[in-house]
Amino acid sequence: NKFNKELQWATWEILNLPNLNEEQVKAFIDSLKDDPSQSANLLAEAKKLNDAQA
């Protein structure tokens, strides 16, 4: 289903952001699991944090 694909993509993207630490990655992944419908928003937040920590 649509959410599953978005969830998988967002998870992969977050796991490959170079500037997030392990705790941050885990928090984002946990949030994705809690509410897959928010995957696009969570991914945007993760990318923002990644850029801020570059």
Rank of each mutant, 00 (worst) to 15 (best):
N1A: 03
N1M: 01
N1F: 01
N1L: 02
N1D: 15
N1K: 05
N1E: 15
N1Q: 05
K2L: 07
K2Y: 07
K2H: 15
F3V: 15
F3R: 15
F3T: 15
F3E: 15
F3P: 15
F3G: 15
F3S: 15
F3Y: 10
F3Q: 15
F3L: 15
N4L: 14
N4W: 15
N4F: 13
N4V: 09
N4M: 09
N4T: 14
K5Q: 14
K5W: 05
K5P: 15
K5H: 09
E6N: 04
E6I: 14
E6W: 12
E6F: 14
E6Y: 11
E6T: 05
L7D: 04
L7N: 02
L7Q: 04
L7H: 02
L7W: 07
Q8I: 14
Q8H: 04
Q8Y: 11
Q8M: 13
Q8L: 14
W9L: 15
W9E: 15
W9V: 11
W9G: 03
W9P: 02
W9K: 13
W9M: 11
A10E: 03
A10G: 04
A10H: 05
A10K: 03
A10S: 03
A10T: 09
T11D: 03
T11H: 03
T11F: 11
T11E: 05
T11M: 13
T11K: 05
W12T: 14
W12D: 15
W12S: 14
W12H: 13
W12N: 15
W12E: 15
W12L: 12
E13F: 06
E13S: 05
E13H: 07
E13D: 03
E13K: 08
E13A: 08
E13L: 12
E13M: 11
I14Y: 02
I14D: 02
I14W: 01
I14L: 12
L15G: 05
L15K: 08
L15I: 08
L15H: 09
L15T: 13
L15E: 14
L15W: 06
N16M: 13
N16P: 00
N16A: 11
N16Q: 12
N16D: 05
N16L: 07
N16H: 13
L17N: 01
L17I: 01
L17G: 00
L17T: 01
L17H: 02
L17E: 01
P18I: 13
P18R: 07
P18N: 08
P18H: 09
P18A: 11
N19L: 07
N19Y: 13
N19S: 07
N19E: 04
L20Q: 00
L20K: 00
L20W: 00
N21I: 07
N21L: 11
N21M: 09
N21Y: 10
N21D: 09
N21Q: 07
N21R: 12
E22I: 12
E22K: 13
E22R: 09
E22P: 13
E22A: 14
E22N: 09
E22G: 07
E22H: 14
E23S: 10
E23M: 09
E23N: 10
E23L: 13
E23P: 08
E23F: 13
E23Q: 13
E23H: 08
E23T: 05
E23G: 10
E23Y: 12
Q24H: 03
Q24P: 00
Q24Y: 02
Q24S: 03
Q24E: 03
Q24V: 05
Q24I: 03
V25G: 02
V25A: 11
V25P: 00
V25F: 03
V25K: 15
V25I: 12
V25M: 15
K26G: 05
K26R: 12
K26Y: 07
K26L: 09
K26Q: 11
K26N: 12
K26M: 11
K26P: 00
A27I: 08
A27W: 13
A27F: 14
A27M: 12
A27T: 11
A27K: 10
A27R: 14
F28T: 01
F28W: 03
F28E: 00
F28S: 01
F28H: 01
F28R: 00
F28A: 03
F28L: 05
F28M: 04
F28Q: 00
I29M: 11
I29H: 03
I29K: 02
I29W: 03
I29Q: 03
I29E: 02
D30R: 06
D30S: 12
D30H: 08
D30K: 11
D30E: 10
D30L: 08
D30Q: 13
S31N: 08
S31K: 12
S31M: 14
S31L: 14
S31F: 12
S31Y: 10
S31V: 08
S31W: 11
S31T: 10
L32S: 01
L32Y: 01
L32N: 00
L32R: 00
L32A: 05
K33L: 15
K33P: 02
K33D: 05
K33G: 10
K33M: 15
D34A: 13
D34H: 13
D34M: 13
D34I: 10
D34E: 08
D35P: 01
D35E: 06
D35T: 09
D35K: 08
D35R: 07
D35V: 04
D35I: 05
D35A: 07
P36N: 04
P36I: 13
P36D: 02
P36L: 09
S37M: 07
S37P: 03
S37H: 07
S37E: 12
S37N: 07
Q38G: 07
Q38R: 10
Q38V: 05
S39L: 14
S39N: 08
S39V: 15
S39I: 15
S39K: 06
S39G: 07
S39T: 09
A40R: 15
A40W: 09
A40D: 06
A40Y: 13
A40Q: 11
N41H: 13
N41Y: 07
N41F: 12
N41D: 12
N41P: 08
N41R: 11
N41T: 13
L42D: 00
L42W: 05
L42I: 12
L42K: 06
L42R: 06
L43M: 05
L43F: 05
L43S: 02
L43G: 01
L43W: 04
L43Y: 07
L43Q: 02
L43R: 04
A44I: 07
A44H: 11
A44Y: 14
A44T: 13
A44W: 09
A44S: 08
A44Q: 06
E45K: 13
E45I: 06
E45D: 10
E45T: 07
E45R: 06
E45H: 05
E45V: 12
E45L: 09
A46E: 00
A46T: 00
A46G: 01
A46H: 00
A46F: 02
K47T: 07
K47A: 05
K47V: 09
K47M: 08
K47Q: 08
K47N: 06
K48P: 00
K48A: 11
K48N: 08
L49A: 05
L49D: 02
L49P: 00
L49T: 06
N50H: 02
N50M: 01
N50E: 01
N50F: 01
N50P: 00
N50Q: 02
D51T: 08
D51N: 10
D51H: 09
A52H: 09
Q53K: 06
Q53V: 06
Q53M: 10
Q53E: 05
Q53Y: 07
A54K: 10
A54G: 11
A54T: 10
A54Y: 06
